[in-house]
Amino acid sequence: MKNELLVVRHLKQYFPIKGGILGRTVNVVKAVDDITFSIYEGETVSIVGESGCGKSTTGRAILRLDEPTSGEVLFDGVNLLSLSKGQMNRRRKELQMIFQDPYASLNPRKTAAQMLEEAMEIQNIVPRKERRARAIELLETVGLSAYQADRYPHEFSGGQRQRIGIARALSVNPRLIISDEAVSALDVSIQAQVLNLMKSLQKEFKLTYLFISHDLGVVRHISDRIVVMYLGTIVEIADKHSLFRQPQHPYTQALLSAIPRPDPEHKKERIILKGDVPSPIDPPSGCRFHTRCMYATVRCQSEVPALREIDPGSGHQAACHYAEDIMTGAKDS
């Protein structure tokens, strides 16, 4: 039986909008609204969705970079949200993050080695005398060289900086690494290098990844399972192959139809969604996707669809009232 390393239960992250002279809360942005999923040890789970769907917020909430409004984040059986700040800081060595912007994620005034040594110092991982040697070892592990250890971030390229970010995350021997759009700022050729690096590191250090991305190609390359989010909620969770072969939620179907295929013979059946993503301040009632869904009915406007296994035992979950009908073609738009 696989061991559940991270379990997220009913996680909600609401951001208040302050207004007026007195700074009262005039409204809330429901960035993440009641999501539940789990990650098994050693696997890579991706969260995909368009901008503003709450994928990054989920990552930040798990690490308590923003304090979640409610819910549970169980890491190895311990609810991280119930820990005190000090307890949480000690636990942080087990959960690390790789950031999106390689130009903003490194302190410009520290050399590569200094950054790694500081990370080890904070978590007291390696004895002081051995830190430098360990830092160089880590840099070599991520494909940089010892002679680059004393360089400042501006002397590295974007891909190299991202490697330093990965080395920094590795320096505290984490078990889970959350990667927030870690390759989206890189050139495509460099993306592949960094993704392959992450894959081999996963094998070498038995890492578990939560991979946040909007890029379906990247997600397909790296994931075992995929979580699809739309407007703060999860619409579908499935094994990678199952999801790409047979997407069950209309949103996922539309998303997947947007992947370009390098096949001139292939006839495009692209599903074009109408309208824009509604505002998370005042999300639609019922199924949040109903305003843009071609299959939507009156039921969808009032009743929130639960995330359920359409095909029992498959582990493929979708949140749609009509998933069965849509799959069999019984339901048309």
Partner: peptide, 17 residues
């Protein structure tokens, strides 16, 4: 607001650090 401050928080750095 920069990510390297988030990175330090992720590593468990204190406010004073």
């Amino acid at each position: 607001k920069l990510e390297y401050i988030d990175a330090m928080r992720t590593l468990g750095a204190s406010d004073s650090r």
